[in-house]
Amino acid sequence: MIEELRNKARELLKTKQVEAVIGYQRASDGLSAIPCVIRSEEEAGRLIWDAACVYNLCGYLKDFRAKKLGIVAKACDVRAMIVLISENQLNRDDVFIIGMECCGVVDEKRARVSGRDGSDISSADKCKSCASCVPLAYDCLIKEKREKAKVSEDADKDKYEPVRKLEAKSLSEKSKSWKDEFKRCIRCYACRQVCPMCYCPRCVADQFMPVWFSKAGGIEGNFSWNVARAMHLAGRCIDCGECERACPVGIPLRDINRKIEKDIKELFGYEAGMKTDAKPFLACFDKNDPEDFIK
């Protein structure tokens, strides 16, 4: 599989179909994968592919606007690209998607704890609720040799079960637990920087006229920031889980994202990045939209 990937990259660079290929290379720890940009055929040997390729690389596409690029992409990464294309941030013709059949990636944080042998490395939470190992769109597909029908055995189960558990809590319980979580937020904005959907030229958190919420690290400002971040992802989040992975204080950001994702799916039947021709969710109006919440 890796050799196939490297050959494809070489071919793309040789035929000048792309200026560079964004992919993964082995980190100095010899185990994890980090992003790399391959600009010549000779470098293509650095490319790797395995369950350590956790990162969503779409964010880098924004830094190479209007250049023809190749990108190594899993199913979830491609969903992010579909959203970016629908939001006019990416030109489909500018990317060559090297689609990777994916059997799930590792839970990076737990892998670090469990050590280097990799024996009890479990797959990431996001993969447990993912049902598609083949990307929705690609220009070439590199197939998984291992026999595995789907990413996870749990995929058929109710993927929103953890969300439902959270919902079942009382209002005061929820309020308290989220306040406790957000109290720890240090406003480093890693969640924003890593998010493929956060591409605003100037984030609302950085605006001065008006100041939307306090920039100091108090609970109000933290609460506002985290809620604003989640709301700005409503109907756009493709659950790549990068925000949660990047968060240095371990706020379970995916829980918030997925609560919104679930509500939108159940109320409006909309899933971000699942259709290449979908309009931005919050900008659309349909006469049949449920409105029983208007009292």
């Binding site: 939001e87 006019n88 941030q89 591409y199 605003c200 030229p201 100037r202 605006q207 309009k279 931005p280 919050l282 900008a283 659309c284 109006f285």
Partner: peptide, 21 residues
């Protein structure tokens, strides 16, 4: 313009076709 990302959400949302890119 400095803040606009060009995501076109406003173009879709405008009921009067009053926004162009």
């Amino acid at each position: 313009r400095n803040l606009c990302s060009g995501c076109r959400a406003c173009v879709v949302a405008c009921p009067f076709n009053a926004i162009d890119m």
